[in-house]
Design a protein around this nucleic acid. Sequence first.
DNA 1: GGATGTGAATGTCTTCACAGCT
DNA 2: AGCTGTGAAGACATTCACATCC
Lengths: 215, 215
Amino acid sequence: MGSSSRKVPASTARRLSVYLRTLETFEAEGVSTVSSGTMASRGGTTAAQVRKDLSHFGSFGKRGTGYPVAELARELREIIGLDRSWRVALVGAGRIGSALFEYGDFRDRGFRIVALLDSDPSKVGREWGGIPVLPVDHLEEVLHSHSVEIVVLAVPAGVVQDLLDRVVRAGVRAVLNFAPTQLKVPPGVTVNDVNLAMELEALSFALIAQQGDDE
Amino acid sequence: MGSSSRKVPASTARRLSVYLRTLETFEAEGVSTVSSGTMASRGGTTAAQVRKDLSHFGSFGKRGTGYPVAELARELREIIGLDRSWRVALVGAGRIGSALFEYGDFRDRGFRIVALLDSDPSKVGREWGGIPVLPVDHLEEVLHSHSVEIVVLAVPAGVVQDLLDRVVRAGVRAVLNFAPTQLKVPPGVTVNDVNLAMELEALSFALIAQQGDDE
DNA sequence: GGATGTGAATGTCTTCACAGCT
DNA sequence: AGCTGTGAAGACATTCACATCC
């Protein structure tokens, strides 16, 4: 009971990655069992939160003992979908695209960049680590021929909505967007935003708010 | 009444940036007044949400008319803290640091990178756009001499907690962290995480969950 | 004894719905 | 008439606390 993924809070989903990373650290340290309390203290949350989060997917612990590190890690990988590999296309071979491409961590975790696209003719035709940069005009056929499941949009704000529409029409249902634009997303499609400007502005806001607290 | 920043939900704070960007678009288009409904449709939220959010800071609209675009934009800039400029130090002159540095948007919005630091001797001594890359050993004095208010940590996971501790001890209270590590943060300090791996994993999870829905 | 798994209680955020201003 | 501002209701998420099992 409980192993179905019915009604998982979005916030829970976002914490699973943290748990997995914590478990992998313990695994590397040779620890074989952890309690929810230990997990919590490393993950910046509470013991009850860890248990509730995990309980959405099943019962992985033993009372009195805790959770088996290796086994729980394996379960989480399966739940998150990291027990397989995903085919990713990167649209926009600029600075951000480059940083992302070089950030080898992803490959290790099953995200394989199988296609690169750009609109700039001076970039098209080049290769990044053996992968050719293709013209963005061919977006649809590239997505199709490479069976792309996840698209990363690292393009200027002005063109991102148009690209998203094309990507969605081509059947892709998961997108990572770096443009500082709030996109119109049809149901059934997940778009995660990485908005660096917004992160900095949130810090600015926090500093201002802190200031006001000393009164 | 209500112009004090008592008890502002974190989620509200994160939406203010979106509202500001929406307003700036309208401003550029010469629109002088917007309703909460229009704001909402562009910001991916609801009219009531927009009004509630704004109501935490004051009453900026006119009933029957809507909100004055230019004036509300100005108010939001002040609330967020974009009516001044912030002094930012960037630790880690690698790929991500470079991408961030080149992403000129920030300068325009008041985030001025005044110092660059790295531990790699081959990078130290170089210049990026006139700003010298300094050795991270001198972190504390650099933060001090440049009156740094915000620090961006674009460094490997292994060293980030140590750097955060130093940064906090040096009196900085706002940090943007790119390492995939859950940091221990003392009270009074705000750390925002940009975790690319986690964003991709969230997409993976979403795809898996969608799959399960068709049953 | 020790730690999980989970209903119940609490807290937080969002949505509703409408009074009140323009 | 139109749209804001806001208490109240509702939905959602977190924390508590304890029975349950190893």
